[in-house]
């Protein structure tokens, strides 16, 4: 407004126009978010990376010295490579199981639930009303040696009389799948519910059978949800330690367990270098994955 006003009163030698004021409100609104990120993301990350380069001979009582000890990484990776592998494998299997269980569920809620839709969504979210730990502990009871599930499987001869479920990789993966399933279902549901049912009719009108219509229309349109769901499941699952701790055995230990134990034992530099390595691995895998699926191309 000021600029327009000035030009109306323009004289043969107009004074240099006042620099248009940049609105500062936008930056002010950014401030809380930026502060939050700096305090709770940037500072901890820098601290973590710094700790991963401390001299490993220090301890929590004597303190640590920054010696840029890059060797920490080589040691950590050499010693814990199999556990990294196991973590990523368990997380991948759990993510796969979440897709297999979650996709049909999300599809049913989006297209078939009708008036039950909200109730089903609440049922998906309901587990969050109790703590993660308590829910995982209850799986310990469920899968216990004398529990209902094991008994039934033994009766059906699907499990040998001295067989057990708890403290196996299966139990850990089951726990991971259970705990992260809602993170798969919700983004998938969000994507699927946005698919216009008329597109499915159009597919059918254009000579595509229901299966082909799903493959060519519905599924591609649900990819953003699938990508979001797999990321939200895979990333926390690969760093998880509760499920392995409560449902596993020493041979099902995941990288989260090792980091937890190392921190508890005061081996801060190794624990930190493992954490950073895990983070880097995940970022790398996510980048490759998102590139491959190419979601930026989708609506």
């Amino acid at each position: 407004m000021t600029v327009a006003g000035a030009s109306l009163l323009a004289t043969p030698h107009p004074p240099a126009p006042a620099r248009p004021r940049r609105p500062r409100t936008g930056y002010l609104l950014l401030l809380p978010g930026v502060l939050w990120l700096v305090l709770f993301f940037l500072v901890p990350t820098v601290a973590l990376v710094a700790s991963s380069l401390y001299d490993p001979t220090g301890s929590l009582f004597e303190g640590y010295q920054m010696t840029w000890h890059v060797q920490n990484y080589a040691d950590a990776i050499a010693e814990y490579a199999p556990i990294f592998g196991r973590s990523l494998l368990y997380a991948a299997i759990a993510t796969g199981a979440c897709v297999l269980l979650g996709y049909p569920l999300a599809y049913a809620i989006a297209f078939k639930a009708g008036r039950w839709r909200n109730l089903m969504l609440i049922a998906v979210v309901a587990p969050f009303f109790t703590s993660f730990l308590v829910r995982t502990l209850s799986w310990k009871l469920l899968l216990g040696d004398n529990g209902f599930v094991a008994d039934t499987l033994r009766t059906l001869h699907l499990l040998s009389p001295d067989g057990y479920l708890l403290a196996t990789p299966l139990a850990v993966i089951t726990g991971l799948t259970y705990n992260f399933l809602p993170f798969m279902v919700l983004p998938l549901y969000a994507s699927l519910s946005k698919v216009d049912p008329q597109l499915i009719e159009a597919g059918s009108d254009l000579y595509a059978s229901p299966i082909t219509t799903f493959r060519r229309v519905t599924f591609p349109l649900s990819l953003p949800g699938l990508v979001a769901g797999t990321l939200l499941t895979f990333i926390p699952a690969s760093g998880d330690f509760i499920n392995s701790e409560l449902l596993g055995n020493p041979r099902t230990r995941m990288i989260g367990n090792e980091i937890q134990d190392l921190f508890a034992a005061g081996a801060l530099p190794v624990a930190a270098s493992l954490s950073v390595t895990l983070m880097a691995l995940i970022v790398l895998m996510v980048l490759v994955y998102v590139r491959r699926v190419g979601t930026e191309d989708l609506v």
Binding site: L199, E201, A202, L221
Partner: peptide, 10 residues
């Protein structure tokens, strides 16, 4: 030819 066209957005 659908009223809202129903073109495949992808």
């Amino acid at each position: 030819v659908f009223q809202s066209y129903a073109l495949f957005p992808h």
